[in-house]
Amino acid sequence: MNPASNNGLRTIVCLKVVPRPEEVRVDAETMTLDRAGAQSFINPPDLNALETALKLKDACGGEVSILSMGPPFFEPYLRLALAVGADRAFLLSDRAFGGADTLATTYTLAKGVEKIGAFDLVLCGEESLDGATAQVPPGLAEWLDVAQVTCALEIEKVPGKREMRVQRELKGGSETLSVDLPAVVSVKANVNEPRFIDYDRMEWALQEAPVGVWGAGDLATDPELTGLAGSPTTVAGVRQVATPDRRRKHLSGSAGEIARALADLLRTQTGSRGG
């Protein structure tokens, strides 16, 4: 809708569509995941990344593109992101991309970023709800050979310079970095409150908005590096883990007995190793 201004930020937001975790089943016979019956939604931290991108656009202008890799059914979710505020979207979709681990995924996404063209910033959600690897942003930065910052809490543009100031989470604290652009930044989950869909944009997003769908031919990807073929890791087995439902186990006895049982429990749960 808004053309990128000359000094605005060209931002690409990586977005993944994930199945509802509680609806994913493991097929005990084939040892594979059955996602067929599961509803999907936009990976929640990716909405935090989108909000970060839109705030930066509000502050310094520019353009926000959405980039995703996955099957064609992802497209409506990309259009939803357009209705929230993004300007255009690209979906990397090809059977050849299927079964990719992080090495192959980051290679393919990097080819997508290169095809979109010049960029200042790639923003990703910290990690995906399904894989929870948090490895895509650093891998993508490496393929693109640009700076990276992970676990970002706050991001602002340094006026007049090709530079961002990023606050990043550390164990037990945070650090502030200055980062040369272009860069890949992963945004912590829940660092902001994603704005809701703008229904005035809905008609445009659903009907007119450009959503580019690119396959292996469009990206000129090396077949040795994409999909299952390009993935060094393999899944040797899967199993369903007990439901996270609450146990509702009643502890009874004298106050002293209950206290002892609780103390044992807490020592294991908090990993407190005798102080």
């Binding site: 509802r20 509680e22 609806e23 509803q39 939604f41 409150e193 994603p194 704005r195 809701f196």
Partner: peptide, 19 residues
């Protein structure tokens, strides 16, 4: 906004799973 996203995504304002 989070309450509305919950309604949109989960079909309830409490962010709880439809199942």
């Amino acid at each position: 906004p989070s309450v509305l996203w919950a309604v949109h995504r989960d079909g309830n304002p409490y962010s709880l799973p439809p199942c």
